[in-house]
Design a binder for these strands. Structure first.
Lengths: 160, 160
DNA sequence: AAGTATTCTTAGTCATGTGAAGTAAACCGC
DNA sequence: GCGGTTTACTTCACATGACTAAGAATACTT
Protein backbone atom coordinates (compact mmCIF):
# COMPACT_ATOMS: atom_id res chain seq x y z
CA UNK A 1 0.00 0.00 0.00
CA UNK A 2 1.45 3.32 -0.94
CA UNK A 3 1.62 6.56 0.89
CA UNK A 4 -1.28 8.11 -0.89
CA UNK A 5 -3.61 5.40 0.30
CA UNK A 6 -2.26 5.50 3.79
CA UNK A 7 -2.72 9.22 3.92
CA UNK A 8 -6.29 8.89 2.78
CA UNK A 9 -6.95 6.36 5.44
CA UNK A 10 -5.52 8.60 8.11
CA UNK A 11 -7.60 11.46 6.81
CA UNK A 12 -10.74 9.35 6.97
CA UNK A 13 -9.98 8.33 10.49
CA UNK A 14 -9.73 11.97 11.39
CA UNK A 15 -13.06 12.76 9.79
CA UNK A 16 -14.79 9.81 11.31
CA UNK A 17 -13.46 10.32 14.79
CA UNK A 18 -14.49 13.92 14.73
CA UNK A 19 -17.94 13.23 13.46
CA UNK A 20 -18.68 10.58 16.02
CA UNK A 21 -17.26 12.58 18.82
CA UNK A 22 -19.20 15.67 17.91
CA UNK A 23 -22.45 13.78 18.09
CA UNK A 24 -21.71 12.44 21.52
CA UNK A 25 -20.55 15.73 22.83
CA UNK A 26 -23.66 17.49 21.65
CA UNK A 27 -25.78 14.83 23.25
CA UNK A 28 -24.00 15.29 26.53
CA UNK A 29 -24.51 19.03 26.40
CA UNK A 30 -28.21 18.63 25.71
CA UNK A 31 -28.08 20.32 22.34
CA UNK A 32 -27.87 18.84 18.91
CA UNK A 33 -24.72 19.24 16.84
CA UNK A 34 -26.21 21.74 14.46
CA UNK A 35 -27.55 23.93 17.23
CA UNK A 36 -24.24 23.79 19.00
CA UNK A 37 -22.50 24.83 15.82
CA UNK A 38 -24.80 27.79 15.46
CA UNK A 39 -24.10 28.91 18.99
CA UNK A 40 -20.38 28.54 18.49
CA UNK A 41 -20.46 30.67 15.40
CA UNK A 42 -22.54 33.35 17.07
CA UNK A 43 -20.00 33.54 19.84
CA UNK A 44 -17.13 33.52 17.42
CA UNK A 45 -18.65 36.45 15.58
CA UNK A 46 -18.69 38.48 18.72
CA UNK A 47 -22.06 37.62 20.15
CA UNK A 48 -24.33 38.49 17.27
CA UNK A 49 -24.73 37.59 13.62
CA UNK A 50 -27.30 37.37 10.89
CA UNK A 51 -28.87 34.17 9.56
CA UNK A 52 -27.27 34.94 6.24
CA UNK A 53 -23.80 34.90 7.75
CA UNK A 54 -24.58 31.70 9.61
CA UNK A 55 -25.78 30.02 6.46
CA UNK A 56 -22.65 31.00 4.61
CA UNK A 57 -20.36 29.96 7.40
CA UNK A 58 -21.99 26.60 7.84
CA UNK A 59 -22.51 25.94 4.18
CA UNK A 60 -26.26 25.40 4.44
CA UNK A 61 -29.30 27.24 3.18
CA UNK A 62 -30.99 30.06 4.99
CA UNK A 63 -34.06 27.93 5.46
CA UNK A 64 -32.03 25.56 7.54
CA UNK A 65 -30.77 28.36 9.72
CA UNK A 66 -34.29 29.64 10.25
CA UNK A 67 -35.23 26.25 11.60
CA UNK A 68 -32.25 26.01 13.87
CA UNK A 69 -32.71 29.49 15.25
CA UNK A 70 -36.38 28.70 15.84
CA UNK A 71 -35.39 25.73 17.93
CA UNK A 72 -32.73 27.59 19.81
CA UNK A 73 -35.36 30.18 20.57
CA UNK A 74 -37.79 27.58 21.81
CA UNK A 75 -35.05 26.15 24.01
CA UNK A 76 -34.36 29.58 25.40
CA UNK A 77 -30.79 29.54 24.18
CA UNK A 78 -30.86 32.27 21.56
CA UNK A 79 -32.94 35.25 20.50
CA UNK A 80 -33.76 37.21 17.41
CA UNK A 81 -33.43 40.95 17.41
CA UNK A 82 -34.48 43.11 14.48
CA UNK A 83 -31.61 45.09 13.13
CA UNK A 84 -31.97 48.83 13.45
CA UNK A 85 -29.93 49.75 10.47
CA UNK A 86 -31.49 47.31 8.02
CA UNK A 87 -34.90 46.12 9.02
CA UNK A 88 -34.75 43.15 6.70
CA UNK A 89 -31.97 41.81 8.80
CA UNK A 90 -32.19 39.85 11.98
CA UNK A 91 -29.51 39.59 14.59
CA UNK A 92 -29.13 36.35 16.40
CA UNK A 93 -27.76 36.53 19.92
CA UNK A 94 -27.30 34.06 22.72
CA UNK A 95 -29.30 34.33 25.89
CA UNK A 96 -27.44 34.01 29.15
CA UNK A 97 -28.62 30.45 29.35
CA UNK A 98 -27.25 29.94 25.88
CA UNK A 99 -23.92 31.32 27.00
CA UNK A 100 -23.84 28.98 29.93
CA UNK A 101 -24.64 25.94 27.85
CA UNK A 102 -22.06 26.89 25.29
CA UNK A 103 -19.38 27.37 27.89
CA UNK A 104 -20.10 23.98 29.35
CA UNK A 105 -19.98 22.25 25.99
CA UNK A 106 -16.44 22.59 24.81
CA UNK A 107 -15.79 22.22 21.16
CA UNK A 108 -15.31 18.66 20.05
CA UNK A 109 -12.03 19.28 18.39
CA UNK A 110 -10.91 21.53 21.13
CA UNK A 111 -11.50 18.96 23.75
CA UNK A 112 -9.84 16.12 22.08
CA UNK A 113 -7.08 17.67 20.12
CA UNK A 114 -5.75 20.37 22.37
CA UNK A 115 -4.95 18.06 25.21
CA UNK A 116 -2.78 15.92 23.02
CA UNK A 117 -1.31 18.66 20.95
CA UNK A 118 0.04 20.63 23.84
CA UNK A 119 1.85 17.64 25.08
CA UNK A 120 4.04 17.49 22.01
CA UNK A 121 7.56 18.75 21.58
CA UNK A 122 7.97 22.10 20.04
CA UNK A 123 9.26 20.88 16.74
CA UNK A 124 6.49 18.34 16.50
CA UNK A 125 3.86 20.98 16.94
CA UNK A 126 5.46 23.03 14.25
CA UNK A 127 5.52 20.13 11.87
CA UNK A 128 1.92 19.15 12.53
CA UNK A 129 0.74 22.68 12.03
CA UNK A 130 2.58 22.99 8.79
CA UNK A 131 1.22 19.68 7.53
CA UNK A 132 -2.34 20.44 8.51
CA UNK A 133 -2.26 23.77 6.80
CA UNK A 134 -0.88 22.14 3.76
CA UNK A 135 -3.64 19.56 3.66
CA UNK A 136 -6.27 22.18 4.34
CA UNK A 137 -5.00 24.19 1.43
CA UNK A 138 -5.08 21.12 -0.77
CA UNK A 139 -8.66 20.34 0.05
CA UNK A 140 -9.95 23.81 0.39
CA UNK A 141 -8.66 25.25 -2.80
CA UNK A 142 -11.44 27.00 -4.54
CA UNK A 143 -9.42 27.47 -7.66
CA UNK A 144 -9.07 23.85 -8.61
CA UNK A 145 -7.93 23.44 -12.12
CA UNK A 146 -10.37 21.40 -14.09
CA UNK A 147 -12.53 21.04 -11.05
CA UNK A 148 -15.22 18.51 -11.72
CA UNK A 149 -18.49 20.23 -12.34
CA UNK A 150 -20.61 19.45 -9.41
CA UNK A 151 -24.04 20.70 -8.76
CA UNK A 152 -26.14 23.35 -10.21
CA UNK A 153 -25.96 26.49 -8.22
CA UNK A 154 -22.73 28.15 -7.38
CA UNK A 155 -20.63 25.55 -5.72
CA UNK A 156 -17.53 27.59 -5.60
CA UNK A 157 -19.44 29.94 -3.46
CA UNK A 158 -17.96 30.82 -0.23
CA UNK A 159 -15.37 30.40 2.33
CA UNK A 160 -15.41 31.70 5.88
CA UNK B 1 -2.56 33.33 17.93
CA UNK B 2 -0.72 30.24 18.95
CA UNK B 3 -0.05 27.06 17.14
CA UNK B 4 -2.78 25.13 18.85
CA UNK B 5 -5.40 27.52 17.57
CA UNK B 6 -3.95 27.59 14.13
CA UNK B 7 -3.90 23.84 13.99
CA UNK B 8 -7.52 23.69 15.03
CA UNK B 9 -8.45 26.10 12.34
CA UNK B 10 -6.65 24.06 9.73
CA UNK B 11 -8.37 20.95 10.98
CA UNK B 12 -11.76 22.58 10.72
CA UNK B 13 -11.06 23.70 7.22
CA UNK B 14 -10.29 20.12 6.34
CA UNK B 15 -13.49 18.86 7.88
CA UNK B 16 -15.62 21.52 6.34
CA UNK B 17 -14.16 21.23 2.87
CA UNK B 18 -14.65 17.51 2.92
CA UNK B 19 -18.20 17.67 4.16
CA UNK B 20 -19.32 20.19 1.60
CA UNK B 21 -17.54 18.45 -1.19
CA UNK B 22 -18.98 15.08 -0.32
CA UNK B 23 -22.49 16.44 -0.47
CA UNK B 24 -21.97 17.94 -3.87
CA UNK B 25 -20.33 14.87 -5.22
CA UNK B 26 -23.10 12.59 -4.02
CA UNK B 27 -25.68 14.90 -5.49
CA UNK B 28 -23.92 14.93 -8.81
CA UNK B 29 -23.82 11.15 -8.85
CA UNK B 30 -27.54 10.94 -8.15
CA UNK B 31 -27.19 9.17 -4.84
CA UNK B 32 -27.24 10.54 -1.36
CA UNK B 33 -24.02 10.69 0.64
CA UNK B 34 -24.99 7.90 2.99
CA UNK B 35 -25.94 5.56 0.19
CA UNK B 36 -22.73 6.33 -1.60
CA UNK B 37 -20.79 5.56 1.54
CA UNK B 38 -22.51 2.21 1.86
CA UNK B 39 -21.65 1.34 -1.70
CA UNK B 40 -18.06 2.37 -1.22
CA UNK B 41 -17.72 0.17 1.81
CA UNK B 42 -19.28 -2.80 0.09
CA UNK B 43 -16.78 -2.44 -2.69
CA UNK B 44 -13.92 -1.98 -0.27
CA UNK B 45 -14.88 -5.17 1.49
CA UNK B 46 -14.57 -7.10 -1.70
CA UNK B 47 -18.05 -6.82 -3.13
CA UNK B 48 -20.09 -8.14 -0.27
CA UNK B 49 -20.61 -7.44 3.42
CA UNK B 50 -23.16 -7.73 6.16
CA UNK B 51 -25.26 -4.92 7.59
CA UNK B 52 -23.50 -5.48 10.86
CA UNK B 53 -20.12 -4.77 9.33
CA UNK B 54 -21.50 -1.73 7.58
CA UNK B 55 -22.94 -0.39 10.80
CA UNK B 56 -19.65 -0.82 12.59
CA UNK B 57 -17.62 0.69 9.83
CA UNK B 58 -19.87 3.70 9.50
CA UNK B 59 -20.37 4.20 13.19
CA UNK B 60 -24.11 3.92 12.89
CA UNK B 61 -26.84 1.61 14.16
CA UNK B 62 -27.99 -1.44 12.29
CA UNK B 63 -31.42 0.03 11.87
CA UNK B 64 -29.92 2.84 9.87
CA UNK B 65 -28.18 0.39 7.60
CA UNK B 66 -31.41 -1.51 7.07
CA UNK B 67 -33.00 1.66 5.83
CA UNK B 68 -30.15 2.53 3.53
CA UNK B 69 -29.98 -0.94 2.06
CA UNK B 70 -33.74 -0.82 1.52
CA UNK B 71 -33.34 2.34 -0.48
CA UNK B 72 -30.38 1.05 -2.45
CA UNK B 73 -32.51 -1.98 -3.26
CA UNK B 74 -35.38 0.18 -4.41
CA UNK B 75 -32.99 2.15 -6.58
CA UNK B 76 -31.66 -1.06 -8.09
CA UNK B 77 -28.14 -0.39 -6.89
CA UNK B 78 -27.70 -3.16 -4.34
CA UNK B 79 -29.20 -6.47 -3.35
CA UNK B 80 -29.59 -8.64 -0.30
CA UNK B 81 -28.59 -12.27 -0.40
CA UNK B 82 -29.19 -14.62 2.47
CA UNK B 83 -25.99 -16.06 3.79
CA UNK B 84 -25.65 -19.80 3.37
CA UNK B 85 -23.42 -20.33 6.34
CA UNK B 86 -25.37 -18.30 8.87
CA UNK B 87 -28.95 -17.72 7.94
CA UNK B 88 -29.30 -14.84 10.35
CA UNK B 89 -26.87 -12.95 8.21
CA UNK B 90 -27.51 -11.04 5.07
CA UNK B 91 -24.94 -10.25 2.44
CA UNK B 92 -25.20 -6.96 0.69
CA UNK B 93 -23.85 -6.79 -2.84
CA UNK B 94 -23.88 -4.21 -5.57
CA UNK B 95 -25.82 -4.76 -8.72
CA UNK B 96 -24.09 -4.03 -11.98
CA UNK B 97 -25.90 -0.74 -12.09
CA UNK B 98 -24.60 -0.08 -8.61
CA UNK B 99 -21.09 -0.79 -9.78
CA UNK B 100 -21.46 1.60 -12.64
CA UNK B 101 -22.78 4.38 -10.48
CA UNK B 102 -20.04 3.85 -7.96
CA UNK B 103 -17.34 3.91 -10.58
CA UNK B 104 -18.66 7.15 -11.92
CA UNK B 105 -18.76 8.77 -8.49
CA UNK B 106 -15.21 8.93 -7.34
CA UNK B 107 -14.54 9.28 -3.69
CA UNK B 108 -14.58 12.82 -2.48
CA UNK B 109 -11.27 12.68 -0.77
CA UNK B 110 -9.77 10.63 -3.51
CA UNK B 111 -10.67 13.12 -6.12
CA UNK B 112 -9.46 16.14 -4.37
CA UNK B 113 -6.56 14.95 -2.34
CA UNK B 114 -4.79 12.43 -4.50
CA UNK B 115 -4.16 14.78 -7.33
CA UNK B 116 -2.40 17.23 -5.10
CA UNK B 117 -0.66 14.71 -2.95
CA UNK B 118 1.05 12.94 -5.76
CA UNK B 119 2.49 16.14 -6.98
CA UNK B 120 4.55 16.61 -3.84
CA UNK B 121 8.17 15.84 -3.29
CA UNK B 122 8.98 12.56 -1.73
CA UNK B 123 9.99 13.96 1.62
CA UNK B 124 6.88 16.10 1.75
CA UNK B 125 4.65 13.12 1.23
CA UNK B 126 6.44 11.30 3.99
CA UNK B 127 6.01 14.18 6.35
CA UNK B 128 2.34 14.66 5.57
CA UNK B 129 1.64 10.99 6.03
CA UNK B 130 3.40 10.93 9.35
CA UNK B 131 1.56 14.02 10.54
CA UNK B 132 -1.83 12.77 9.45
CA UNK B 133 -1.35 9.48 11.19
CA UNK B 134 -0.27 11.29 14.25
CA UNK B 135 -3.37 13.46 14.28
CA UNK B 136 -5.60 10.49 13.55
CA UNK B 137 -4.15 8.68 16.52
CA UNK B 138 -4.70 11.73 18.68
CA UNK B 139 -8.34 11.95 17.75
CA UNK B 140 -9.17 8.32 17.63
CA UNK B 141 -11.09 7.19 20.67
CA UNK B 142 -9.41 3.84 20.87
CA UNK B 143 -6.10 5.36 21.79
CA UNK B 144 -7.27 7.84 24.36
CA UNK B 145 -6.68 7.32 27.99
CA UNK B 146 -9.85 7.89 29.91
CA UNK B 147 -11.72 8.13 26.69
CA UNK B 148 -15.26 9.26 27.25
CA UNK B 149 -17.68 6.45 26.70
CA UNK B 150 -18.86 6.81 23.20
CA UNK B 151 -21.46 4.18 22.79
CA UNK B 152 -25.18 4.56 22.74
CA UNK B 153 -27.16 6.21 25.41
CA UNK B 154 -25.60 7.99 28.29
CA UNK B 155 -22.41 9.81 27.87
CA UNK B 156 -20.55 11.01 30.87
CA UNK B 157 -18.84 14.01 29.50
CA UNK B 158 -15.50 14.52 31.05
CA UNK B 159 -14.06 17.90 31.64
CA UNK B 160 -10.48 18.80 31.85
C1' DA C 1 -33.42 -29.18 25.07
C1' DA C 2 -33.44 -24.76 27.17
C1' DG C 3 -31.72 -20.56 27.62
C1' DT C 4 -28.90 -16.98 25.82
C1' DA C 5 -26.78 -14.29 22.35
C1' DT C 6 -26.53 -12.49 17.73
C1' DT C 7 -28.27 -10.64 13.36
C1' DC C 8 -31.42 -8.30 11.14
C1' DT C 9 -36.01 -5.89 10.43
C1' DT C 10 -40.05 -3.06 11.78
C1' DA C 11 -42.14 0.85 13.74
C1' DG C 12 -42.17 5.25 15.55
C1' DT C 13 -39.70 9.54 16.30
C1' DC C 14 -36.64 13.34 15.72
C1' DA C 15 -33.01 16.37 13.59
C1' DT C 16 -31.16 18.35 9.60
C1' DG C 17 -31.36 19.71 5.21
C1' DT C 18 -33.63 21.23 0.71
C1' DG C 19 -36.36 24.05 -2.79
C1' DA C 20 -40.14 26.93 -3.88
C1' DA C 21 -42.95 30.51 -2.89
C1' DG C 22 -44.04 34.48 -0.14
C1' DT C 23 -43.22 38.96 2.58
C1' DA C 24 -40.94 42.96 3.62
C1' DA C 25 -37.45 46.16 3.34
C1' DA C 26 -33.70 48.40 0.79
C1' DC C 27 -31.58 49.98 -3.39
C1' DC C 28 -31.36 51.93 -8.15
C1' DG C 29 -32.51 54.39 -12.21
C1' DC C 30 -34.92 57.81 -13.93
C1' DG D 1 -40.58 59.66 -5.57
C1' DC D 2 -42.26 55.83 -8.26
C1' DG D 3 -41.47 51.27 -10.05
C1' DG D 4 -38.70 47.41 -10.61
C1' DT D 5 -35.13 44.52 -8.82
C1' DT D 6 -32.43 42.60 -5.32
C1' DT D 7 -31.72 41.05 -0.69
C1' DA D 8 -32.92 38.94 3.86
C1' DC D 9 -35.63 36.15 5.99
C1' DT D 10 -39.67 32.92 6.83
C1' DT D 11 -43.05 29.31 5.78
C1' DC D 12 -44.30 24.98 3.92
C1' DA D 13 -43.98 20.42 2.28
C1' DC D 14 -40.91 16.91 1.97
C1' DA D 15 -36.49 13.77 1.76
C1' DT D 16 -32.74 11.89 4.26
C1' DG D 17 -30.36 9.95 7.97
C1' DA D 18 -30.16 8.85 12.54
C1' DC D 19 -31.89 6.83 16.96
C1' DT D 20 -34.43 3.51 20.32
C1' DA D 21 -37.35 -0.22 21.40
C1' DA D 22 -39.26 -4.31 20.32
C1' DG D 23 -39.65 -8.53 17.68
C1' DA D 24 -38.36 -12.64 14.76
C1' DA D 25 -35.25 -16.00 13.24
C1' DT D 26 -31.17 -18.38 13.74
C1' DA D 27 -26.97 -19.92 16.06
C1' DC D 28 -24.33 -21.03 20.19
C1' DT D 29 -23.62 -22.99 25.03
C1' DT D 30 -24.32 -25.71 28.74
Amino acid sequence: MDRTDESLIALRRILRATELYERDLATAAGVTPAKLRVMQIVQMKGGTTTPKALATQMGVSQATITGLVDKLGRDGLAERVQSQTDRRQVNVTLTSRGQTVLDSAPDALQQRFVREFERLENWEQAQLLSSLERVAAMLDARDLDASPVLTGGSLMAERD
